[in-house]
């Protein structure tokens, strides 16, 4: 294995780890529930993309294992497709539950004309 390839793989995985760390700190520090939801999207997009690109390069160039590379691609695509759906569901469920942040929002259009208000 050449040194350049190793450095490239390390940089990809390091970028993923950095954004995952940022998302984790965001989830711990953010003031209310909706903002925490935004920070956890950070983990699910850039963390997964970075690590998947790094491991994909490793599986193709070092292990020379095509099945493993395809499986890594499938896992990445699955996480990226399903994360927004659970995001919508959680956000709408929280709002319908009547959860409001302590500090009032800057603008709240959903309150004045809630299309799902029975």
């Amino acid at each position: 294995m050449s040194l350049a390839l190793r450095i490239v793989i390390d940089v990809c995985i390091f970028v993923g780890a950095f954004f995952a760390l940022a998302g984790t700190i965001g989830v711990i520090r953010m003031p209310d529930t909706y903002c925490r939801m935004q920070a956890s999207t950070c983990i699910a997009t850039m963390g997964v993309i970075g690590v998947a690109i790094g491991t994909l390069l490793y599986a193709i160039c070092v292990e020379k294992n095509a099945a493993m590379a395809v499986k890594i691609g499938v896992v990445m695509a699955f996480v990226l497709f399903t994360n927004p759906i659970s995001g919508h569901a959680l956000c709408k469920g929280a709002y319908r539950r009547g959860l409001r942040p302590k500090r009032p929002m800057v603008i709240d259009d959903f309150k004045e004309d809630d299309p799902y208000d029975e």
């Binding site: 956890s40 983990i43 997964v48 491991t55 994360n83 469920g93 929280a94």
Partner: peptide
């Protein structure tokens, strides 16, 4: 509240997926 816990469980599951890939 419960939404925070569900959200955190989702994030933990994604982190474990990444660790398993590595």
């Amino acid at each position: 509240n419960a939404v925070d816990r569900a959200l955190t469980a989702d994030a933990i599951e994604i982190l474990l997926t990444t660790a398993l890939m590595l």
